[in-house]
Structures are given as structure tokens and as C-alpha cells.
Design a protein around this nucleic acid. Structure first.
Lengths: 348, 348
DNA sequence: CTGTTAGCGCATTCAA
DNA sequence: TTGAATGCGCTAACAG
């Protein structure tokens, strides 16, 4: 047997489709008696309104999409993203929205943008030149970006990555560190061709450059700075950390582009008997909830992940309601905790 | 101006709606020339098919829902859930599904079940007696449970929580620990009235009881076992951990129902100069990716979170395809790593 | 290969 | 307070 529809309820209860519809969506506009009768019949026949049909009729899905460039699997591997989602989730919950986590379908992000059944979208890290902007406009889909360009003509919530990265390095350099290892962000492992998602990395890179120049350390940097992409796989990350910490003239400081990259270094340092921060300074970027529980607590650039997500969602629902909004730039201060100190005497 | 629809494209291009539709969904069934013409017009007019209408017509959303009892915000605070989502996500990605994270709307889970625009749902921890089963059946919505009853008449993926909890305690008891602190799972902070979500806790509780009885330690347990609900808030968790580790006759072992609860104890132990495992044994439950990177690595019940999610999603898409499936019970072995040892001599 | 036609199931305006 | 009629935008037999 086919599905039981509103028509069946109407027929069986003796009322019209309209009344049934009202009974479900606007009980106040129907006589109490009618309401109860209809509900009884609905219950009995196992009726339940079809969401798809409702959406088509109302033009509202009551769900917001969070679109990320990476495969879903990698999304939930990333605690920073979790923080963003917590923020987004808080306003979804308050406003009665559902949250749909969107990632490129078959590696094609435009597919996702076309097929997503949502009222609006929050998207991470698209550059100004990306074609996604055109696609959103074509679908007339309201959207808010995070970590994109704050002065562009779309809504964005972000921080000043360049400045933050610079300040973080300043701290290390001012402590006298000259042999520094940088763990950079992994490029996203998806075959998106039509967009470019590396704004954040670029900005931070520029900040680092500025700090280097400011300290007149171009030469030193060339010789004794190490840059590498940390792996997401634990084993590899640990292996790499061990390599780095056991090399001759090992770095005296580790500059991580994500807090999570610090963990393997803590682990290996403990194994090797290296004391943090006496023997080794480590810095993070994000300030995940757990980072202040490392021992010693991690010195970081504090990134307001939760707030960022919350604000982005706030902007989205506001523009869904037709309100005018503006992009917002958030603070991202360096927070020095216990994982950084002056470079050890003997390695100067 | 209203939205541009398939009809506009048909009119403007001179073809019928059908051809336009095919051009988008099944390019093969349309002449190449036609296809290109239609696409050009679509591009020019800024057309993009309406997902809602498509869903209504095809009766397929190409999205699976993951339904959890807690507010969205809390979902992403939980790494174990992240593991589940990674698993679910891996098959979503492979099968071209989107993932919608569902939580009770306005605290009412039945609302969510009614309104979710998905092809099927994966749901966590519902007891047999919960009314959600009836609701899913009423909506004829395929669903798979996780951590529910494995021998019930719905599809479930789970582990033997009772047995796992028992084995974990056996290990501690066999090491001679008699003063043990148990960090139990927080009850879910939502106002769901019509369901009951504490199966997991109950099962583990039973396992613990069995172990106690097996060791003839009912009396000891009464006197020197501590049970408490660990807070999700970092500060409180740390404060509580400090309280426990500084009390007279402090516990010699901490039995955590979730790996994350172990972190504050590691932290406070380091602050107090307590060595793990020499002075203090700690056990976890879940085996999160980061738990093997604690120092020393955490002894745990390994819960196959990723695999569980993957399997649940696998079962769901299989039943979406009309295949018959069966519930599956997964292994959850105790993995002893570096955080457990015999009880210290002087505290015997 | 293309067009005609009939739904998909519900919301909502307007009249009764 | 209730009902009839219309539209939401697209898909998919079926016929040509």
C-alpha cells in the first residue's frame, strides 16, 4: 500500500484537506472538536505529514547547511571544525533549525551547492575568486563565509590570520629561538578544481614572513627554519615528531598551525625526556578546549571557534529574516601559557 | 522577479520541460546539440533545479540523518560521537549521500522525526521501550540504531557494554586496587520525555557489579568505591579531579566511562607530582585516537567508534536498497597500555 | 530523440 | 469555522 496522505485523512475524517493541514500546522484555527477528531484519525491511520511536500509548498526547509571542502570523514577529525559546529549548532538549536553537514559530492562542490536542500549555507574558507560565490548567487541562496575575506561583498566572519601568526612568531623570536620547526596545515585532500581554499594558510604565511623581516632574520630563517606538513595519521605524525626532535641541532621551538599538531610533540618529548618548555618550546594555533589541559598548558593563538560559528549562524539567520548585516572581524590574541620559554642557554 | 524555473528554460530554449529535465539529470538521453543549447540558456538565465521539487518528485533526498538526543551544541563536544560520524561519513561520501545532524527540535524528538527530510536515520541509544520505534514505523522511515538492543526486532550495531565494563574492572581489581573512583557518564541534558536513553550506562553498571561480586568485594565497594558524574566543563572537571586526588586515602585507580574524563586526571596528577601508573592507575572507555598519545598511553576498553558508524551507515543504505540485514555485535577488547599497574605497596 | 500529461503531498488564498 | 481551487517545481511514464 502507498503512503497515507493528507487526502486520506480528509476523506476518512469527513473534513477537507485544508482543515487537516490546519490541524497540524495551526491548531488554533480549527474547532477543538475538529482538531481532536482529525488527530484521532491521523493517529489511527498512521499519518504523518510529508516533509518534502511541506518544503516545496512553504519554500522553507528549516535547516542550515555547513559546507566544507573536505570529505565528511575528515571533517569530524578536526576539533577546530567541531568548535565551529558547536557555535553554529547553538543558534540552530535556539532557532529550531536542523544542521546539514555538506561536503563535495563525488568531489564536486558545485553539485553539493545545487542539491543541498537548505535555507542557507555557511561555508569555510573560500577565496574571493572562487566560483562558489557565483553559484550561490545563481541559486539565490543566502550564505555566510568563515575565514574568508572580510572586506569583500559577501558576509564573512573571520580573524586577522596574518597578524596573529606574526605575533605568535614574534614571541618565539623574542625569546631567542632561532631553530624553529613549523608544522603547516595540510592541504585539503579533495579534488575540488573550481575553488581555492588556502586563504588561511597564505595569510598566516605572510604574517610569519613579516615577523622574520621585522627581526632581520631572513638568512637565519633560510638556514634553520624547518617547514613541513604534519600528517593527520597519528603514527606518521609521531614518527615525524621523533625525527625532528632527535635530529642533530634539533629545533628549540615548534610552531604548530593547529593545536592538534602539538600533541605528538608533547608525546615524543616526554618519551625522550625533553622538558617543555625548558628544553623545547611549543606553540599552537586555535586554542582547543583540551589545549589548556596539556601539561604544561599550551601557548597558543586563541581562535574564537565557537564564537565564530555562533556569529556566522547568527548572521545567516538574520539575513534569512531579511535583515541587513555586516561582516565581522574577531579578536585572536596570543595567549602565553606554560609551553614557551627562553631558548636554552647551551643551544644559543 | 520570481525564481526561474524549468518552465522558463523550456520556453526560452524552445524545448519541453522534459528535455530540460533530462539535460540536467540524464544528459545521455538527449541530443548533444539539445543539451548544449539548454545548458546555455540555463546558464544565461541563472537557472538551477530546485532541490525541494526534485525530492518531492523522486521521493529521494539522498541524505541520511544522524539523530542524537542531545542539543546540537553538545554533540560536537563529544569525540566519541565524532568517531561515529566519521564512520557514517565515510559511507555517505562513498554513496553520495549528505549527512544531516538531527537533534530534538525544541527538546522534542518526535518533532525531529516528523520533520527530518531524509531517506533514513541512524539513531543512538534508544531503549526497546522507546516510542521512537513506533514513530519511525509510522513514517515508514528506515532506521538503524547504535548502542541499543542487539536482539530486538530493529537493526542495531553495538558492543557488549556489560562484558567490556566488567573486564575493565577485573583488570583493576586483579591488580589489587581497592580504592577506585568511577567517573560515570553524564545524563543527557535535554527534556526528552518520551524516550529513554540510558541503556549504555545501565549495561556498564551491571558489568561493574558482576566484577565486584566475582571478586567478593561487595563490602569493600560500598566503603571505598566512589561514583560521580564528571562535568563536561573543563574547569569543574579539573577541580573535581583535584579534590579526588588530594583527599585522604585517595583512590589508587580512576575508572573513566569515557576517555575524555581521563584528561583532567592526567593534568592534575602531573601538577601534584603523582606518577602514572606507579602512584595512580587510570582507565578509559572508548579509545579515542588521542588516547594512545597521552603520556603514558591510556589503558582502555577499545570501542570501535569509526567502524560502528561505518557499519550502521552500511546497514542503512543496504536496507534503503531493499536488502535484508541483521544487527551486528562488535568486539570491544580491553587494551592495556601504560596507564595501569599494580596497586602501590604502601597503600595496600 | 522529444513532447504530453499526470502526478508528488501539502499550504494557502479566497469565498462561502 | 470550513472547503474548493490553485500553485510549489520537478520527474517519469507513455506516446509520438
Amino acid at each position: 500500500m502507498g503512503k497515507v496522505t493528507i487526502k486520506d485523512i480528509a476523506k476518512r475524517s469527513g473534513y477537507s484537506k485544508t482543515s487537516v493541514s490546519f490541524a497540524f500546522n495551526n491548531p488554533g484555527r480549527v474547532a477543538k472538536e475538529t482538531y481532536e477528531h482529525i488527530m484521532a484519525v491521523a493517529q489511527e491511520m498512521g499519518y504523518s505529514p510529508d516533509p518534502a511536500a511541506r518544503i516545496l509548498a512553504t519554500r522553507k526547509t528549516k535547516t542550515v547547511g555547513f559546507l566544507l571542502p573536505q570529505p565528511i570523514e575528515e571533517i569530524f577529525d578536526n576539533q577546530y571544525l567541531s568548535e565551529l559546529m558547536r557555535g553554529i549548532g547553538s543558534v540552530c538549536h535556539r532557532e529550531g533549525f536542523m544542521l546539514s553537514v555538506l561536503s563535495p559530492l563525488k568531489g564536486i562542490i558545485s553539485q553539493t551547492i545545487q542539491q543541498a536542500c537548505v535555507d542557507g549555507i555557511i561555508i569555510l574558507g573560500v577565496s574571493n575568486s572562487s566560483s562558489v560565490h557565483a553559484q550561490f548567487r545563481q541559486r539565490k541562496l543566502p550564505y555566510v563565509t568563515m575565514d574568508a575575506d572580510n572586506s569583500a561583498d559577501y558576509l564573512n566572519v573571520g580573524i586577522d590570520d596574518e597578524k596573529a601568526a606574526e605575533e605568535m612568531l614574534d614571541l618565539l623570536l623574542d625569546y631567542g629561538h632561532r631553530r624553529i620547526c613549523f608544522c603547516t596545515l595540510q592541504p585539503i585532500s579533495t579534488d575540488i578544481v573550481d575553488t581555492e581554499f588556502s586563504l588561511t594558510s597564505d595569510n598566516r604565511g605572510n604574517g610569519i614572513l613579516k615577523s622574520i623581516k621585522k627581526h632581520n632574520l631572513e638568512e637565519t630563517a633560510k638556514n634553520s627554519f624547518i617547514f613541513y606538513e604534519a600528517s593527520h595519521k597519528q603514527e606518521e605524525a609521531v614518527k615525524k615528531a621523533r625525527e625532528i626532535l632527535t635530529m642533530p641541532n634539533r629545533p628549540t621551538a615548534i610552531y604548530c598551525m593547529g593545536d592538534h599538531q602539538a600533541i605528538p610533540f608533547y608525546f615524543v618529548a616526554a618519551q625522550l625526556g625533553l622538558k617543555i618548555p625548558q628544553d623545547l618550546s611549543i606553540t599552537g594555533f586555535d586554542d582547543l578546549p583540551s589545549s589548556s589541559m596539556l601539561f604544561p598548558p599550551l601557548t597558543v593563538v586563541h581562535q574564537p571557534g565557537y564564537e565564530k560559528g555562533r556569529l556566522a549562524a547568527e548572521l545567516l539567520v538574520a539575513s534569512l529574516n531579511g535583515q541587513e548585516c555586516k561582516s565581522v572581524l574577531m579578536e585572536s590574541p596570543v595567549i602565553e601559557r606554560g609551553s614557551t620559554a627562553k631558548v636554552p642557554e647551551n643551544t644559543k
